[in-house]
Computed example of a mutant assay.
Amino acid sequence: MKRALSLFTIVLILSGCSTIRDAADIREPSVSFQDMSIDRITFDGVTLLFDFEVNNPNRFGVSAEQYSYEFFINEQSFITGLQETPLSIDRESTQMIQVPVTLNFSEVYETFSSVMRQDSLSYALSTEVEFDVPVLGNRKVPVRTSGEIPIPKVPRISMGEFEVKDISLSGAEVEVSFNVQNPNPFAISIANAAYELTVNGREWLDTTLGETIRVAGSERQTIKIPIRLSSSQMGSALMDIMRGESTFNYDLKGSADISAELDGFRDGQSFPFDLSGTYSLD
């Protein structure tokens, strides 16, 4: 009996020593930034995904009750958020958490007008994860990362030239050109471009461009479209041109699908254009 009690006592002592040793070895979990990716970016806004790794070095599981974040632009606070979904991390293991941040570019421009003239903006993200750790209690672990994200801009459409190739009383052959200016540092492609051109109140052109036009970063591309016009289509413009008068009013409306060589940019984003003015033939 005494021998059995002695063995039981030894077991209790060893167990107690192990518990004391575990308690003395309790460490705070750590959080480290791993990656930032662009989930979706358009001319209107962007959704960013920030991945963080949570490491629990202890011989027991811990839980994160919540995490908060603050997003900065040009070192000024812009967005704050709080995620209250509990997170459990097993003993001596790691787990990923993801913080999504969505920006509306129009709201960014209202606050930071200088960004409109930039190709990218500087950001910083501060995240704080709150853990419930045995013995230590609640612990808040901060982590911060920073970088830059691109700001895509809508291409600019402008009238090019009207070149009269041939003219007679029955009508005229005209070549109309449009200029596409890409203000971005990356290349864009334009597809399914639909145009409606009205000159002096009469429709001269209503067509969809079949080909895809690629415009390199910070470059301009000219699109030329030949048009065969009857005298009824040209109206008074025909006689005006034949008499040497060279000024007339135009209205160019249309839309096009844009794709960009930029991560996260979804192809086929449509943008409209509407131009009007006065053109003078040379």
Rank of each mutant, 00 (worst) to 15 (best):
M1S: 05
R3A: 14
A4Y: 05
L5H: 05
L7R: 04
I10S: 08
V11T: 07
S15D: 03
G16P: 04
S18G: 10
T19Q: 06
D22I: 14
D22M: 08
A24E: 09
D25A: 15
E28I: 15
E28V: 14
S30D: 11
S32I: 11
R40E: 15
R40L: 11
R40K: 12
T42I: 00
G45H: 06
G45A: 06
V46D: 02
F50V: 13
F52Y: 15
V54W: 06
N56P: 09
N56D: 10
N58L: 15
F60A: 14
G61R: 12
S63E: 12
A64I: 00
E65M: 05
Q66R: 15
Q66H: 06
Q66G: 04
E70G: 12
F72W: 10
F72M: 07
F78M: 08
I79R: 09
E84Q: 02
T85H: 01
T85S: 08
P86Y: 02
L87A: 02
S88T: 13
I89T: 08
S93E: 12
S93P: 03
M96V: 10
L103Q: 11
E107A: 15
V108I: 12
V108T: 01
Y109V: 04
E110L: 05
E110F: 03
M116E: 12
L121I: 02
L125Y: 03
T127L: 15
E130Y: 01
D132Y: 02
P134S: 09
L136S: 09
R139E: 10
R139C: 02
R144E: 14
R144N: 10
R144F: 09
I149L: 15
S158R: 02
M159R: 09
G160S: 01
F162T: 03
F162A: 04
E163I: 10
V164A: 13
V164K: 11
V164G: 11
S168V: 08
L169H: 02
E173V: 06
V174C: 04
V176Y: 12
S177F: 02
F178W: 01
V180M: 07
P185R: 10
A191R: 13
A193D: 08
A193S: 12
A193E: 13
T198G: 03
T198I: 15
V199K: 05
R202A: 14
R202C: 05
R202D: 15
R202I: 03
E203P: 00
W204K: 06
L209Q: 14
L209S: 07
E211S: 04
E211A: 07
R214I: 13
S218D: 11
S218T: 08
E219V: 01
R220N: 11
T222E: 14
I223P: 08
K224D: 07
I227C: 06
R228C: 01
R228E: 15
L229Q: 10
L229I: 01
S231W: 01
M234V: 08
M234G: 04
S236L: 01
A237F: 08
A237N: 10
D240K: 15
R243H: 07
N249D: 15
D251N: 10
L252M: 11
D257K: 10
S259W: 10
S259M: 05
E261G: 09
L262A: 06
F265G: 12
R266F: 05
R266K: 09
F271K: 00
F271G: 00
P272Y: 00
F273K: 06
F273D: 02
D274V: 02
L275E: 08
S276Q: 14
T278Q: 13
D282Q: 10
